[in-house]
């Protein structure tokens, strides 16, 4: 669906990521991790088509009039300005704007899809609530619903569990997993939280030394690689079928 061929990414001529050669396949659950400042956001912007490569080529399927179609983007909930007075339903309807076309206002069909999606993310009772009055988890659910009403085949999420407690993290990740299965979505997810990512994604990509190392999660997630990437020793243990990455403390 998205293919990077020898891509270099950067800003103002300064390279951030080099020699990117990989493909995100249809139906994949693709996770991107890396230390702070490694270039996760840069890579995400390139995948979204917001950043042109300095070198190389990024091929997207489903391009129409220069714009990529069928991509649902879920930004970090903190990046959506809370001073905007908007209901949850209206926020979700925004995801239909491109489908509605210019000069058009939301129609009954748009409301039906928005209400259905709010139900899918467990937010139907809060449809008339003001967005700014929601909790972090509820905001994230609303933004996921907004991305989903455009009926995407690819869902791209930037730090979807940022700033949430454990219960909130699991609830959001389970929701993404359900949507991935029910709607046969390709999911691309950026997170700094290895423990969360390791238990959900199929393909794991790690940004290290300005490039990307990727593969099936079981082959890439090992103590040696983690120690090299994060510069600290870690233990990877399996508890009741779930992976846990635990940093080794000195003494």
């Amino acid at each position: 669906m998205i293919k990077f061929c020898n891509v270099q990414l950067g800003y103002s001529g300064r390279p951030v990521l080099n020699s990117l050669n990989f493909e995100i396949r249809k139906g994949d659950f693709f996770g991107i991790v890396g230390p702070n400042g490694a270039g996760k956001t840069t890579l995400l912007k390139a995948i979204l088509g917001l950043l042109k490569p300095v070198k190389g080529e990024i091929n997207f399927l489903n391009i129409k009039n220069g714009h990529r179609k069928n991509v649902g983007y879920v930004p970090q909930h903190a990046s959506v300005d809370e001073i905007f007075p908007i209901t949850v339903l209206d926020m979700v309807l925004m995801g239909r704007y491109t489908k509605m076309g210019i000069f058009k206002r939301p129609k009954k069909g748009d409301y039906t899809i928005a209400e259905k999606m709010l139900k899918n993310v467990g937010m139907e009772d809060l449809a008339e609530q003001n967005y700014r009055e929601l909790s972090g988890g509820q905001k994230q659910r609303t933004l996921i619903a907004r991305a989903m009403v455009g009926e995407p085949d690819t869902l791209i999420l930037d730090e979807p569990v940022e700033g949430m407690d454990i219960q909130g993290e699991i609830a959001i990740m389970e929701l993404i997993k359900v949507l991935h299965t029910e709607y046969a979505l390709t999911v691309v997810l950026v997170s700094h939280d290895l423990n969360i990512i390791a238990n959900y994604v199929k393909t794991l990509s790690i940004i290290h030394n300005n490039t990307l190392k990727l593969g099936p999660v079981d082959s890439i997630l090992n103590e040696e690689t983690m120690a090299r990437v994060y510069g600290t020793k870690v233990k990877i243990v399996n508890i009741s079928g779930q992976k846990a990455i635990i940093p080794e403390l000195n003494d």
Partner: peptide, 15 residues
């Protein structure tokens, strides 16, 4: 409204 509320979302959605 879209470019006022969320410029990046507007861009990625094709606006």
């Amino acid at each position: 409204a879209a470019v006022t509320l969320d410029f990046e979302m507007a861009r990625t959605s094709g606006i």
